[in-house]
Nucleic acid binder design. Structure first.
Lengths: 191, 191
DNA sequence: CCTGCTATGTTATCAATGCTTACATTTATC
DNA sequence: GATAAATGTAAGCATTGATAACATAGCAGG
């Protein structure tokens, strides 16, 4: 290929992807507030101003991270839908919550109101794409109208947020995945 | 009383309360990230270092704000419980969501993982107090066990968060309060 | 090879912020 | 009044996001 710049290393290597990878690690370890451009540049081994060649601002970097988060989210949803589970809505709900638990800081970033405030079109598009499939499946599967679909979504999203924020205290010896399954499927823990 | 310092004006007036009031205004207008101690001091009309006489750090100020938020929240919950509605759980759920909508940034701050990270005892106590009553009412009213109580909580909290984050798009002419009522009471919008 | 041209990275620097220290001023108490 | 505590100010430090000027690496065409 002649125009292989997106993949081939230039000066450093493909710095943009290296920055995103390192940023994701720092994000999950330190939280969004602890992700500074200087630390990030130091982690990758470039000068403090180098990231600005790839991201206009810190907010733009966070947006790019959130977009990759929505892409992973979409992939996880598509995979579970393609696997053809017996109860599709419950399986997707469970995947929804587990995704949040396995990508804690990233999930929070995806729904960060700070990012949504300055209407970044890339984030909007990634978010819409992710929820288009989810909305379609939930709305088509439940067939109980808008309120039921929103209630199901709210239950799943609320469970994810409460677990992330440490509001739901696990009882002794309780398996978190079993609890999620029980709540999503709306049945007692011990069946 | 001899020790009326908490209320009586000293040099400036009771600076601590003035700071909290102004901080709440800035918080709802600019978001948590936009609440700087310099702006805050300027808004109240004191020097940039004056707030540090009342709050050890920016985090301590945010904690104090969150504590007042939990106190308001507790009051709202107690009031609706004392009013003796027909369906107590639904009434409290609706109050829960409306409180979030009427105190957007404050509600988010109350559940901020940043604040929870450094275990501040005041915040923990205020949070526990607020949820003790809620947990008691939900648990005692539903009588369907832990999973049902958590599911109800998750639905209400998730609805609040999704509305705050602008994820739920209102349809043309749709009343948000009616939608909240419908979802919380789990019935169609048009009865 | 040499000359533009673009993409990328570095150095130096600025402004704003959270925070601290040393000092000044007002109030309370004896 | 004297003294000590409480409260506010002034000045400055370290860090951070952001920008500007400069330097380097690849590419294209003569």
């Amino acid at each position: 290929m002649s125009t292989s710049r997106a993949n081939a290393p230039y000066h450093h290597g493909n710095l943009r992807n290296a920055l995103l990878d390192a940023a994701l690690v720092i994000l999950e370890r330190e939280g969004e507030a602890g992700l500074g451009l200087r630390d990030l540049a130091r982690a990758v081994g470039v000068s403090p101003a180098a990231p600005y060649r790839h991201f206009d601002s810190r907010a733009a970097l966070l947006e790019a991270l959130a977009v990759t988060g929505f892409q992973r989210f979409t992939r996880a949803m598509d995979e579970v839908a393609a696997s053809g589970p017996a109860d599709l809505a419950s399986a997707m709900g469970k995947t929804y919550v587990l995704f949040a638990l396995q990508n804690r800081a990233l999930f929070r970033l995806m729904f960060s109101p700070q990012l949504r405030r300055d209407h970044r079109p890339g984030l909007r598009m990634a978010s819409d794409a992710a929820f288009a499939t989810l909305r379609h499946v939930i709305g088509g599967d439940l067939k109980e109208g808008r309120v039921a679909a929103l209630a199901a979504w709210a239950r799943v999203h609320g469970l994810a947020v409460l677990l992330l924020d440490g509001q739901i205290a696990l009882q002794a010896g309780e398996d978190i995945e079993a609890l999620v399954t029980a709540i999503v499927e709306n049945r007692p823990v011990a069946p």
